[in-house]
Design a protein around this nucleic acid. Sequence first.
DNA 1: AGTTTGACTGGAG
DNA 2: CCTCCAGCCAAAC
Length: 103
Amino acid sequence: MLRPDIEQFYKEVCEVVCHIPEGKVLTYGDVARLVGYPCHSRLVARALSSLPAGHHVPAWRVVNSQGRTAPCWPQQQALLEAEGVVFRKAGFVEMKACRWQLL
DNA sequence: AGTTTGACTGGAG
DNA sequence: CCTCCAGCCAAAC
């Protein structure tokens, strides 16, 4: 790990994800950057996939850079659609409209 | 300590 | 739109 407390990293990831408003999404890379790890998108993915059952984190609002849903997690698309996220034909988030703009 | 793996990324075919 | 490939980096094995 890059830092002595990876737990802090996980905590920050959860915090950022919890702040994503309904109908909006963020990419792994964006979350990584927000918590101070610009090149650790995979670590974000690992953090979210390792979350304990019953967590209150809307991890489904995090998608990959192409606006694609996780390959091993088909339910994600349905969850997003239920919140009003716009999807293209084959399961692509319309990032242009739904990516959370922090600027 | 070396190898494999992955809820990634971006580009090419 | 889909798959494959190379680059990437920390965790898991």
